[in-house]
Simulated scan of single mutants.
Amino acid sequence: MKRYVFAVAALPFGSFPALADPLASWNDTATKAAIIDFVERVSDPNSSDFVPEEARIATFDNDGTLWGEQPVYFQLIYALDRLKEKAEADPSILTSDVLKAAAAGDMAAVADGGEAGLMEILNVSHSGLSVDAFQADVADWIATARHPDTNRPYNEMVYAPMLELLDYLEAEGFQTWIVSGGGLHFMRAFASETYGIPINRIVGSVTPTSYEVVDGVPVVMKGPGIAFQDDKAGKPVGIDSHIGRRPIFVGGNSDGDFQMLEYATAGDGPALGVIVHHTDADREYAYDRDSHIGKLVRGLDEADARGWVIIDMKEDWAKVWPE
């Protein structure tokens, strides 16, 4: 699925009709007005808040901000699917209770394993193969796997209003980036086609990698463990390392994005932080403070004081999913 692209056809000289609403999937609420007002101010050369194009950087979290993240992170679902396949071919890889539980689909036992158990699952499912082979495998999974609740392909579990926002920002001279806690190589396998964001504008968590020549072919291999976690305080570090500028527009949905929002809006000049608040149990899911995924506490408590905009999914979005 390719991202929505808004285009304006050539118009006869002298005709100036109003342009189509770039955020058509958004209800006409104060949230939409605040976003449009900010974009117009920073992109208008006559505005005191004008920001040159090279500094119009927008960064977005992925899980829960651009696409869904319930009932668990989609990358974990991929890891569990691949672990089960590998275990069927070679049961000896199930060297711990957590791995055995994961292969059996016992999610309660997997949750009890905590971060250490999750790392075991990721090590078995994500390492020991080249980056190219891993990304090809993720692309195959994206093409065939279906979400357990909606039965949609995972690359259709993206939020239509956020796709429109990405296009709107690009049309107004912004450079859009993904800065997410998800795996860099995992996101590279689908994000460019899904969001229209080039792979060199993706910042994510990475495993240790190494250069090797395998059967005469030079490759980069994925190893076990985590070399850099692009979450929480890691997000500003990733932004500094890969972008080199503070963003002036940031989109997130959880307290894992708090430091990225804080970093961006602490800079000189205008900046806007937005938080997707999952309030729609009918069309998607409703969760925040007590959620095991996408917990949102500090962001809700401090958004008003910091000038951040809370996107109420139920009230602000006319629709959630693309057609």
Results as ranks from 00 to 15, higher is better:
187 M>S: 10
20 A>R: 06
136 A>I: 11
112 D>F: 01
216 G>I: 06
139 A>E: 05
77 I>Q: 08
130 S>I: 10
1 M>P: 10
46 N>K: 12
298 R>V: 10
20 A>S: 07
137 D>K: 10
189 A>T: 11
45 P>E: 09
24 A>F: 00
87 A>V: 11
271 A>R: 04
319 K>V: 06
117 G>V: 06
87 A>D: 12
12 P>I: 02
108 A>P: 01
290 D>I: 04
21 D>Y: 02
113 G>S: 05
8 V>F: 04
198 P>R: 11
225 G>Y: 12
165 L>Y: 03
321 W>H: 05
134 F>G: 04
164 E>A: 00
204 G>F: 10
293 I>R: 02
41 R>W: 05
173 G>T: 03
48 S>D: 13
116 A>C: 03
185 H>E: 15
143 A>W: 11
263 Y>S: 09
60 F>A: 01
105 G>A: 04
7 A>P: 00
34 A>I: 01
73 Y>L: 08
233 A>P: 14
212 E>F: 06
244 G>D: 08
310 I>V: 15
106 D>L: 08
267 G>F: 13
44 D>V: 02
188 R>D: 07
46 N>V: 02
211 Y>T: 15
287 Y>R: 13
29 T>K: 00
133 A>N: 09
267 G>M: 07
251 G>D: 12
5 V>Y: 02
146 R>F: 04
308 W>C: 07
163 L>D: 05
305 A>V: 06
203 V>D: 06
241 S>A: 15
64 G>H: 03
122 L>K: 03
53 E>W: 02
225 G>K: 10
163 L>S: 12
40 E>C: 04
107 M>I: 11
243 I>C: 11
263 Y>I: 13
149 D>A: 13
278 H>P: 09
4 Y>F: 14
81 D>P: 05
245 R>E: 09
23 L>T: 00
124 V>G: 02
38 F>G: 01
302 E>W: 03
150 T>A: 11
63 D>Y: 03
172 E>K: 15
170 E>Q: 13
101 A>C: 09
241 S>K: 15
22 P>C: 03
264 A>E: 07
1 M>K: 08
106 D>Q: 05
262 E>N: 14
76 L>M: 14
10 A>I: 09
9 A>E: 15
27 N>M: 00
322 P>Q: 02
67 W>Y: 13
16 F>C: 12
57 I>T: 11
307 G>W: 12
194 T>Y: 12
95 T>I: 14
314 K>W: 01
33 A>R: 00
61 D>N: 12
81 D>I: 02
